[in-house]
Design a protein around this nucleic acid. Structure first.
Lengths: 320, 320
DNA sequence: CACCCACATTGGCACGCGTCAATAGTTGTA
DNA sequence: TACAACTATTGACGCGTGCCAATGTGGGTG
């Protein structure tokens, strides 16, 4: 592997010269030397070892983004893409880590001495404390914030359903463990809004994501117009297909709203009403905080501000 | 940040002792010392700096998995999960890098001196050569292999459709750029099988993933029984929904087969016939090759062997 | 008692890099 | 000529680690 010493040898200068020229001190050297070093480095495909650099600097330029065990849908993907791009502009390298429930996996990454760790899922407070005690800057949705966002989503669903004149509603959530992070909070949001506005909220349905279970769930519902607040678009799709099969008329007898505004919502027929979120807004803010190293602790009273950016996308599965 | 020296000081031993005990040479030391060092390290939350270790070893324990700009669906997610898990058992840390088309992004990762790089998308031969010249072990589907696999998928779709007595078929692919990697090859597989078995293959439909476009596509089809080989389950879902809306009877008048065997295929009603792949098989093999450092170059004549593991999952959208 | 050997532990080097003090070379000033 | 003031470049140190050679420490054997 090419090292700075190799480049120096070939360019006929000292290793120190190479290092300085490639680290923003080129103005100290003659144009001739600078050109020769740059060229040689390029030709040899030299990449400074992050190990050496990290060692001498004490921290790496690496940001680790923890992806929890949730569905990595288009929304999350786009978020991460934007984040990676934004960080790259600041000279930081974003790498992803799929964090299953196993705790030790997260620790494996600490050896990198990452610049900071971004979590897409709320970490337990004790974990955050442990990381920060090690000097790692942890950024991410606090449990409180995540909860607030999910409650907001649930509230929006209920609000939309009521606005479309579904006065009797129910929550539908998947049985899969992967979704257990947010499901209770979203349900809470629906229930709160429902009871606040005198809606009739039926017991929550929990289904496996198969056609059979969806049919059973739909069959278990009482007759009469009803609105279903689904955990995400996949759940909504399952319910929608089953309802159509059972001859339930959509949206007259049954209203369905999902979450994510995914391809599923837009591609199915009828299109599914869903909830989208404004990612760019969040990403821009996030990058700023990472670079500046300022704390990103959302005070409880300000969570409302951060739960903006959620928008109901009207589809054909809900209509007055 | 805690270092091995800190641990040594607190445990009352030399730094060297700490290092050796934590690196598989514990048998050289007394039980008492080993216990004390292990305990102290645990209490202090010591994680050896990867920088130091990499420096002295010349290579890190990090495997970089490049995720191309394709849909990170459940199948890919599961594959990566399994891979991460398998590598962890071998002491390797798997990190993900979302690689957009931008070349420089990949280089950013070279400074890590990764143990190897796994690519989920075929890299250009010159890129592979460049990486290997730097001593990085590149593993991944060669363009040839990926192509072979995709052709196989297409062939399987056509075969299944013919088996279910759809003698007139068409390919449906999404317009999105993200899917352009595999789409042509899958189409090729369908066409080849079709012409080989005297099937009538209609011109390929290209649709955006919206309900409207799907309706238009379905409307453009001639009357009579037809089988549609869809690029993936999302496309299949779009077509299915549109067909049901148009009163096309499924599977009598129209057969639909997707790819991925995703939640979509199982959750929709009717369930969608799809193609699944045996991930664990591939992953186990992959991990073995990474650890052993042996070449994983699939010889052209052996591609067939690697394209096994694809299975048609019968759903309700195709039936004789 | 002298010797050797196994055991338990430590000292010291090298890895590649960024940085800063130190050096050589050149020009300007008194 | 002597000396300062600059410019262009280099030497040397230390970051944290893994590992090998070296050291100390007993206990057993002759």
């Amino acid at each position: 592997m090419t090292g700075s010493a190799d480049v120096a040898l070939r360019a006929g200068v000292s290793r120190s010269t190479v290092s300085q020229i490639l680290n923003g001190r080129a103005h100290l050297f003659s144009e001739e030397t600078v050109a020769k070093v740059r060229e040689t480095a390029a030709v040899m495909g030299y990449r400074p070892s992050l190990a050496g650099r990290t060692l001498v600097r004490g921290k790496s330029d690496i940001v680790i983004t923890l992806i929890p065990d949730i569905t990595f849908g288009p929304t999350v993907r786009e978020f991460v893409d934007l984040l990676t791009e934004g960080l790259a502009k600041e000279g930081l390298t974003n790498l992803l880590r799929l964090s299953s429930s196993d705790d030790t996996l997260q620790d494996a990454v600490l050896g990198l001495r990452p610049h900071s760790i971004v979590t897409m899922a709320p970490l337990r407070p004790e974990d955050i404390e442990r990381l920060e005690k090690q000097g790692i800057y942890v950024i991410g949705q606090s449990q409180a914030f995540q909860a607030a966002a999910d409650v907001t989503i649930g509230r929006l669903q209920a609000e939309h359903l009521l606005g479309q004149d579904y006065k009797r509603i129910a929550v539908v959530r998947p049985r899969s463990i992967r979704e257990q992070y947010s499901a209770p909070e979203r349900e809470k949001g629906v229930l709160e809004y429902g009871s606040l506005h005198a809606m009739e909220v039926l017991p929550t349905l929990e289904i496996g994501l198969t056609s059979d279970e969806a049919l059973k769930a739909v069959g278990s519902l009482p007759a009469g117009r009803i609105g279903l607040a689904c955990y995400n678009d996949e759940v909504a799709l399952a319910i929608l297909g089953a309802a159509l099969r059972e001859g339930v008329s959509i949206p007259a007898e049954m209203g369905i709203i999902g979450v994510d505004n995914s391809v599923i919502a837009r591609a199915s027929t009828p299109t599914i009403t869903s909830i989208s979120m404004d990612l760019e807004l969040n990403v821009r803010e996030l990058v700023g905080h990472i670079v500046s190293g300022r704390e990103l602790r959302i005070p409880p009273e300000a969570t409302d501000e951060y739960t903006r950016g959620f928008t109901v996308i009207q589809g054909d599965t809900t209509r007055r």
